[in-house]
């Protein structure tokens, strides 16, 4: 059974590229274009992993991350933050809020896939 991935970003082109990459890696992919849509999708069916953009309209990535971690049923959901803000503080903030990994845009497609695989393997 293949893992389920939720891609959340307000940039349709980035969503498109990630969706393509994840599907090619053999995962089931759903997408959302803002924070609230993301939470709605998770509520509908919790994925194994969320690729989460930070700068988004209507609930940013941090808020979404917090909401996921606040929910006991979603404890097993892995979160990888994606951000175009490269500063160290942002990374620390994301990890402090409960994200499992942190990837800076622009990213290497290979690296994204590898990180996703690693995280899912760890989770078993």
């Amino acid at each position: 059974m293949s893992n389920k991935i939720l891609v959340v970003d307000d940039e349709p082109n980035i969503v498109l590229s990630l969706e393509f990459l994840m599907k090619q890696a053999g995962f089931q992919v759903r997408t959302a274009s803002d924070g609230e849509a993301a939470l709605a999708a998770i509520t509908a069916e919790p994925p194994d992993l969320v690729l989460l953009d930070v700068m988004m309209p209507r609930k940013n990535g941090y808020e979404v991350c917090q909401a996921i971690r606040a929910h006991p049923d979603w404890a097993s959901v892995r979160i990888i933050m994606l951000t175009a803000k490269g500063r160290e503080v942002e990374r620390e903030k994301g990890l402090a809020l409960g994200a499992d990994d942190y990837i800076t845009k622009p990213f290497s497609t290979q690296e994204v896939v590898e990180r996703v695989r690693e995280l899912l393997a760890e989770a078993g």
């Binding site: 940039e11 980035i14 590229s17 990630l18 393509f20 175009a84 803000k85 990213f107």
Partner: peptide, 25 residues
């Protein structure tokens, strides 16, 4: 600068991602 960087990285992300996809496929 942080904002500009963000704005610059966003199109750059798409460009790089699709270029790599095209290259790999």
């Amino acid at each position: 600068i942080s904002t500009v960087t963000h704005e610059l990285r966003t199109p750059l992300t798409s460009i790089r991602a699709f270029s790599e996809i095209l290259l790999a496929n």
